[in-house]
Simulated scan of single mutants.
Amino acid sequence: MIHPEVHNTVSLEFSAMARAKSVGGEKLHSLGLGEPFWPAPGAVRQKLSEIALSEHYGYKSPFGNQILRQSIAHDVTAIADARIEAENILVTAGAKQALSVVFKTLLEDGDEAIVVDPCFVSYRPQVFLANHNAKIIPWSLTDDFSIDIEALKALITPRSKVLVVNSPNNPSGGLISAVEMQALVAIAKNHNLYLVCDEIYRDFVYHGATFVSANAYRDIYDQIITIDGFSKTYGMTGWRLGYIVASKEFLQNAVKVVQHEMTNVPEILQVAACEAFNLPDGWFEQYRSVLERNVDHYNNALEDISILKTAPIKAGMFCFPKFDLGDFTSDQVAVKLLHSQNVAVTPGVVFGKDWDSYLRVSLSSPEDEFHDAIEKFATFFRTFL
């Protein structure tokens, strides 16, 4: 039986209107989805084409392709300045399945998962899908979406088992600093918590901000688990390729979930994905720089609109402005924006009832399209001034 807290987020009025407009052929300016505007790398697609016609793939290891695991381990080692081996990697069907596997491996009846708030919409449902009798403890970020260590400490109980964070954060654009990450690791260690960090947006940092991986602290605490994948940086959302980085001991249990749910991630996709690690240095910069300029344009276009407040956008694919429009809900505002300007954003309420005066805005559009959409977005809010 599905837990009653597992909701379908597309039931909003906004979602119904957006679908109707799309089906009707109207041009939408989409600032809603977490979808890269760039395609998968040509070398990856070419490799898939070649091996699809020339080779046969049957059942393979549930841990994942060994060459891919070695490549991921080398990449994580370079980013985190930590020794990561192939045996620390478990390949999954996307970062979503990675998180699902982690929760299914860890959570028992009555366990508490402390989950950063706001967060990606699938975190809370996945806790309940893993264990119907687990409990979620929301840990709210501050007004500027930085973390509150003292508030976190007050939430910990003898039943606390997992601490879930996301850096860079979806939806807020916040980023955990080195000092903050050290504090999180220390708290997890002191209370014997598993620190689960979703790092899928690790390459999306702007204006000199620095991404700090939880893997950098693995030598002082082995109950650190990170989630990552190929969807965002490499524009491979439809490929469904993700991975878990964790201790060898943890993965010996986690692999049982993959083995009995799907045997293995399709080998042909894994072999093709290996080409991502042969791309030229700085390959992603062509796209990251566009997103950074989109951040600048967003800030410039909206700086004089007093009823809209946006925390500093340090990283990630989104920003999360707060609106001050009296009793209007985020769904109502999103519907009005879509109706009047054909601009689609994500109502904040999909991230929880505490975020119903916010809208999530995606930065992931080509510059000219983003500029047009944000100008319309700004025009809409100016009508309320």
Results as ranks from 00 to 15, higher is better:
M181S: 02
V185Y: 07
A186K: 15
A186H: 09
K189R: 15
N190W: 00
H191V: 00
N192I: 10
N192K: 14
L193N: 05
Y194W: 15
L195F: 02
V196K: 03
C197V: 15
D198P: 07
D198A: 13
D198T: 13
E199M: 06
E199P: 02
E199K: 10
I200K: 03
R202C: 02
F204V: 04
F204W: 08
F204Y: 15
V205A: 07
V205C: 12
G208W: 09
A209S: 12
A209V: 11
A209G: 00
T210S: 11
T210L: 02
F211Q: 02
V212Y: 07
S213Q: 00
S213E: 06
N215C: 13
A216G: 06
A216H: 06
A216N: 02
A216T: 15
Y217S: 07
R218N: 07
D219Q: 09
I220S: 14
I220R: 12
I220E: 15
Y221T: 02
Y221N: 08
D222A: 03
D222I: 04
I224W: 10
I225H: 14
I227Q: 05
D228Q: 10
D228N: 15
G229Q: 06
F230G: 01
S231A: 15
K232Y: 12
K232A: 11
T233W: 01
T233N: 11
T233P: 00
Y234A: 02
Y234W: 15
G235V: 11
G235F: 06
T237H: 12
T237Y: 12
G238W: 08
G238Y: 03
W239Q: 02
R240I: 08
R240D: 14
I244Q: 09
V245T: 15
A246Q: 04
S247W: 11
K248F: 04
K248T: 15
E249A: 10
L251P: 10
L251W: 01
Q252N: 10
N253H: 13
N253P: 00
A254T: 03
A254P: 12
V255G: 06
V255N: 06
V255M: 05
V255D: 05
V255A: 10
K256R: 11
V258C: 13
V258N: 08
V258E: 05
V258A: 09
Q259R: 15
Q259M: 12
H260M: 12
E261N: 13
M262P: 00
M262G: 12
T263N: 10
T263W: 13
N264P: 05
V265F: 11
E267P: 00
E267N: 13
I268S: 09
L269G: 05
L269T: 04
Q270I: 06
Q270F: 11
Q270Y: 08
V271L: 11
V271H: 06
A272F: 01
A272W: 01
A272Q: 06
A273Y: 08
C274Q: 14
E275L: 08
E275W: 06
F277E: 01
F277T: 04
N278D: 14
N278G: 00
N278H: 11
P280S: 12
G282I: 03
G282C: 04
G282T: 01
